[in-house]
Simulated assay, not measured.
Amino acid sequence: MQIAVKRLQAISAKAEMEFAVEVEVLGRVRHKNLLGVRGFYAGGEERLIVYDYMPNHSLITHLHGQLAADCLLDWPRRMTIAIVSAGGLA
């Protein structure tokens, strides 16, 4: 099984709160367009979140990263993705 691990770079009060919220919310939500959280680790100065692996990269990579030039997501498609994802959180 392949996984992806997100590591919190800097420990601050804001980053700590965002970490906790991300773990709590994504740990409870199940939706086809959202990554599943496998687990997390918070010990000492280390904060890690373990996700299911996404072989086609992340949405952020397609929109703004190395794959953005080849991205076929026009604004209507982007809005559809945002609306469907928001529905998964509701």
Results as ranks from 00 to 15, higher is better:
residue 45 E to P: 00
residue 3 I to Q: 13
residue 1 M to H: 08
residue 24 E to I: 00
residue 35 L to V: 11
residue 10 A to T: 07
residue 6 K to F: 01
residue 61 T to Y: 08
residue 12 S to C: 03
residue 85 S to A: 12
residue 51 Y to R: 09
residue 41 Y to K: 06
residue 10 A to C: 04
residue 36 G to A: 10
residue 17 M to I: 02
residue 55 P to M: 12
residue 24 E to G: 00
residue 9 Q to W: 09
residue 12 S to D: 14
residue 51 Y to F: 08
residue 10 A to P: 00
residue 66 Q to C: 04
residue 80 T to Q: 15
residue 90 A to I: 11
residue 53 Y to E: 14
residue 6 K to R: 12
residue 20 A to K: 14
residue 30 R to P: 00
residue 29 V to I: 13
residue 76 P to S: 13
residue 22 E to Q: 12
residue 45 E to A: 03
residue 61 T to V: 12
residue 46 E to A: 03
residue 78 R to W: 05
residue 64 H to D: 11
residue 34 L to V: 04
residue 51 Y to M: 13
residue 64 H to Q: 13
residue 75 W to H: 07
residue 45 E to N: 08
residue 52 D to W: 06
residue 57 H to K: 12
residue 27 G to H: 08
residue 32 K to V: 01
residue 78 R to S: 03
residue 53 Y to F: 12
residue 89 L to P: 00
residue 74 D to E: 15
residue 9 Q to C: 02
residue 59 L to N: 02
residue 8 L to V: 01
residue 83 I to Y: 07
residue 51 Y to I: 01
residue 8 L to G: 00
residue 88 G to W: 13
residue 12 S to E: 14
residue 55 P to K: 11
residue 52 D to F: 00
residue 69 A to W: 07
residue 2 Q to C: 02
residue 41 Y to M: 03
residue 10 A to Y: 09
residue 2 Q to I: 05
residue 50 V to S: 11
residue 60 I to K: 15
residue 64 H to F: 04
residue 47 R to V: 04
residue 11 I to C: 04
residue 15 A to Q: 11
residue 60 I to Y: 15
residue 8 L to Q: 14
residue 59 L to E: 07
residue 52 D to L: 02
residue 24 E to Y: 02
residue 86 A to H: 09
residue 43 G to Q: 14
residue 73 L to A: 04
residue 34 L to A: 05
residue 11 I to K: 14
residue 6 K to S: 10
residue 25 V to I: 14
residue 36 G to Y: 10
residue 56 N to R: 09
residue 21 V to N: 13
residue 89 L to S: 07
residue 49 I to G: 04
residue 23 V to M: 13
residue 56 N to G: 01
residue 36 G to C: 07
residue 55 P to Y: 09
residue 41 Y to A: 12
